Simulated scan of single mutants.
Amino acid sequence: MELLYELSGENETLPRAELEAVLESGGFDGREILSDGRVLVLSVAAKQGREEAGGAAVARLLSSRLSLTHNISHYLGCVLLEDGTDPLCRIADFCRDAAVPAGAFRVTAVRIGDKVPGINRMDVERVAGMNVPSKNIDLKNPDSELLVLLNGRMAYFGTLLEKVNRAQYEARKVEYRPFFSPVSLHPRVARALVNLANVRSGDTLLDPFCGTGGILLEAGLIGLSVAGSDIDKKMVDGCELTLSHYEIPDFTLSVCDIGDAHRVFGKVDAVVTDLPYGQASTTMGEKRTALYRRAFRSIMRCLKKGGYAVVGANSIEPLRRSVRGMNLLSVHACYVHRSMTRYFAVYKKR
């Protein structure tokens, strides 16, 4: 099946990496058909040994996990809008042959790239709706929705399968949680990092610098068993308050030094953590270079063979240094504010 994804524009590399990691952990391969900025089309198939699933089932799985994708559609095709002919005529011609499901439908056009002169979103919706063969338009309660992504010179068409509920992440920002600290990742980023760890429901994920519990919260909400530690008891108590407030059923927390994490928690399936930085993060007087070195040794000890670690730092250098026993797979830059950029690296234990 070919699926059309509208990716978030808030980061260059994380949206696609998150999507591919969730497909992988769900037992699917995704082969690229086309990629155009925030538009991605993949041919998705079940891996060997995994039961086949239809597009709707795959879309439901993805929408329940993803944070940096807007929607998932069954891909119908695309139209070049600048070829010397009227772009609306091109859209009309395409829609006359479009495989839109029978029944009532509506058209939604979304602009995600540069504007093409002489074409606007409302005109696209009107022309597409007039030319779909069934002409059975229902704006309030349609049986299906034809999505048109306007991306510069191209228009991409799909029948919508799932929209990602991105509002839920805004509602879980740290200022709305029962325990607050100014040093906390946005929930969308925290969820994406959890997904990069290639985790499956029931796996155990550890955050050995758990802070306010933002990473553990997102992990717990997708069915993971979560474990966390911090050297600051106030943070651990606050993390427990947060996880209990959101009724996360399976969590273990400890006040301990990073060097003791492997003894406290044993082996885990994944480690996702954001290393301490800034004045609001305590290192108990330890130099960060030494702390980071100890952190990587402890992370490697905690991980099961083949497990993934996703680690954040305020510069790329500590992440690129050789970590014995783990392969560095990718590094993603994430703008935070003003001149601050965080870097997140994905590792796999050999």
Rank of each mutant, 00 (worst) to 15 (best):
G266C: 13
F344D: 06
E24M: 04
P142Q: 10
D274L: 05
R38S: 12
V264I: 15
V107I: 11
C210R: 05
K234N: 14
Y246R: 07
L34M: 14
L76W: 06
G77C: 09
D269C: 01
S144N: 12
I248C: 13
T283S: 15
G214N: 13
L42G: 03
L206F: 10
L42I: 06
S201P: 08
G30F: 06
I119Q: 06
H186M: 06
A313S: 11
L14V: 13
R191H: 08
P249M: 06
S43W: 12
P318I: 09
R301W: 04
N131Y: 06
E20S: 07
Y277G: 00
K267V: 02
R263P: 02
E317L: 12
G228D: 00
C302V: 04
I33A: 12
E12Y: 01
I215T: 08
I231E: 01
R65V: 05
Y277I: 09
T85Y: 04
K267Y: 01
S73E: 12
F209L: 02
S330A: 14
M340C: 04
G307K: 04
G278V: 07
Q279T: 11
S67P: 05
R320F: 05
R350F: 08
T69H: 08
A313K: 03
I231N: 01
R297L: 13
K287N: 15
L88E: 05
L196C: 07
